[in-house]
């Protein structure tokens, strides 16, 4: 019987299986696009965490003489009509975007996973009831749903996160439920039952990990759409209240008036949103491959 030694094969391919940096280097070589995504996301997260160190100006202080200042000089990326430094506002905006994106995706993901897993595993009337509820929620577009939620909750960071998280629940629940339905009939689940494992433990240990791959892709896509939805809500006055910098509102409030006269007010927040969404998507694709043991060797 031929024995394939995976460790030897990996070592030859340049995988330093032990050690964090060695492994990271190996993965970066294997998934160059994922590495680009990881760098972008890392940059985004670091910007958010160290906004107070990075930003050269106070993002909230106005200066009438600097109104609509062009990029360069004191204001690297220009200033808006109230004379607030664009670079500082974008740097601080990363905090809001990160909080909303991660908060909403996590909250929506946890609720969605719980509902989907129970729906698929319990079945029967519970499944029927929850799925019809999900149908009703999904019949409204994400933004409309978020609008209704935000309008009834009132504008604040927490409420924006909740308003965006709830509409994300049905798609997560759907994905988890459909994988659960096929997984619960798999012989390895029956084997777990045969050794006397409880149903909850089977659901968490055997079913949930196997629904992860599509969830990670969905989750990273949702990070992007959460950032975009927050922007739309803020533009309509239902998201992050003034004067806190939100990329979405910076983009949308200047788009109509200043796109011809001061395009930097539109371009830079737009670039920030695009790069972040792009980064999360690239990272998500790579993560799905890395987290699937079948693709690891």
């Amino acid at each position: 019987m031929a024995v394939i030694d995976h460790d030897a094969a990996l070592a030859k391919a340049g995988a330093n299986v032990s050690g964090f940096w060695g492994q990271a280097g190996f993965l970066a070589r294997r998934y160059p696009l994922g590495a680009v995504g990881a760098v972008l996301v890392l940059l985004f997260v670091l910007t958010a965490l160290f906004a107070n160190v990075i930003a050269p100006h106070d993002p909230l202080s106005t200066n009438s003489r600097a109104s609509l200042a062009t990029p360069g000089g004191v204001y690297w990326l220009g200033a808006d009509f109230m004379g607030r430094d664009m670079f500082s506002r974008i740097v601080y905006g990363a905090r809001i975007s990160l909080a909303v994106a991660v908060g909403a995706t996590l909250l929506g993901g946890i609720l969605g996973v719980a509902i989907g897993l129970m729906s698929g595993f319990i079945g029967g009337w519970f499944d029927l009831a929850t799925q019809r509820l999900m149908d009703i929620m999904q019949s409204l577009p994400l933004l409309v749903m978020a609008l209704v939620m935000a309008a009834s909750l009132g504008p604040s960071l927490e409420n924006t996160i909740i308003a965006i998280a709830i509409p994300l629940v049905p798609s997560v629940a759907r994905v988890v439920r459909s994988s659960t339905l096929s997984l619960r009939e798999q012989p390895f689940v029956e084997a777990a039952r045969a050794i006397g494992m409880g149903e909850v433990r089977i659901a968490v240990r055997h079913v949930l990990p196997n629904t992860l791959a599509p969830l990670i892709v969905l989750g990273t896509a949702q990070l992007g759409s959460a950032i975009l939805t927050e922007a739309s809500l803020s533009f309509l006055g239902l998201g992050i209240p003034e004067p806190y910098p939100s990329w979405g509102r910076m983009l949308s409030e200047s788009a109509a008036e200043y796109v011809r006269t001061a395009p930097w007010l539109v371009i830079f927040p737009g670039v920030a949103i695009s790069l972040t969404v792009f980064g999360t998507n690239l990272l998500g694709d790579a993560l799905r491959d890395i987290l699937d043991p079948r693709q690891r060797t």
Partner: peptide, 23 residues
């Protein structure tokens, strides 16, 4: 009550691919 009897009886499946959790 059945749990102690589960230790007495085990099963081997036909399909060697789907009977092992891939993760």
């Amino acid at each position: 009550e059945l749990r102690p009897y589960r230790r007495q009886m085990q099963i081997i499946f036909q399909d060697p691919f789907s009977s092992l959790n891939p993760r």
